[in-house]
Amino acid sequence: MNMTAVYRTDKQALIELRGVTKVYGSGQAAMHALRGVDLRIDEGEFVAVMGPSGSGKSTCMNILGCLDTSTAGTYWFKGVEVNRLTRNQRTKLRRFYLGFVFQGFNLLNRTSALENVELPLIYRGASAHERRHRALEALRTVGLEGWESHTPGELSGGQQQRVAIARAIVTGPTVLFADEPTGNLDSARSHEILELLNGLNREQGVTIVMVTHEQDMAAHAKRIVRFLDGLVESDKPNIRNA
């Protein structure tokens, strides 16, 4: 990957946002989702992002995940200025460094769990053998051994989210972004998912950024960032886990 962006010289954070804004629409109808967010996340952190609906927490995470672009401000990922990357370069950033888990799972319908998990590896150009091997391993990690050939329609919500997590981690990403990963699950399933994420963070050192509005889910994280009206309202370590 050839990144012709500006490198910073001071000690590198994994993720650094400075003065990031996001405006939807324009003129009178303009909606300011982010009003100048500064945020720094280091490698190995487990950050819960909280805040009421409309506070900008999801928008911020989509920008961090390169699924969306900011209106102004600067975003450095591993010292690379993401704002200056082309569309394809941002795609490659997702391909090689980032993993996603969504509230709505976003799995391919009528497609087996195994093939869903293999999907990111296809775009990485992995061989069929390697794809299968790694996908099976990822499914084992999330506790879905034996469910490889089931399609999303044949799996429960909790199982679907596990498939989604397997898909996110199969590439061995640097950061895993989870947008309300437990929003559609009951509390028992939710805690299982959080245990899983926790394990990934602890054992494999995956940096996790998780958006949630449930206090007891956020309690699993090492650090809690609260958004309000498009700004970071508070940012403190979670005393219980820190």
């Binding site: 795609t91 997702r94 391909r95 996603f100 391919l108 999907l119 990111p120 775009y123």
Partner: peptide, 12 residues
């Protein structure tokens, strides 16, 4: 489907 593919790293 296209959104999913793009998200997991497929080029346009």
């Amino acid at each position: 489907e296209i959104g999913i593919r793009l998200a997991v790293g497929a080029l346009e």
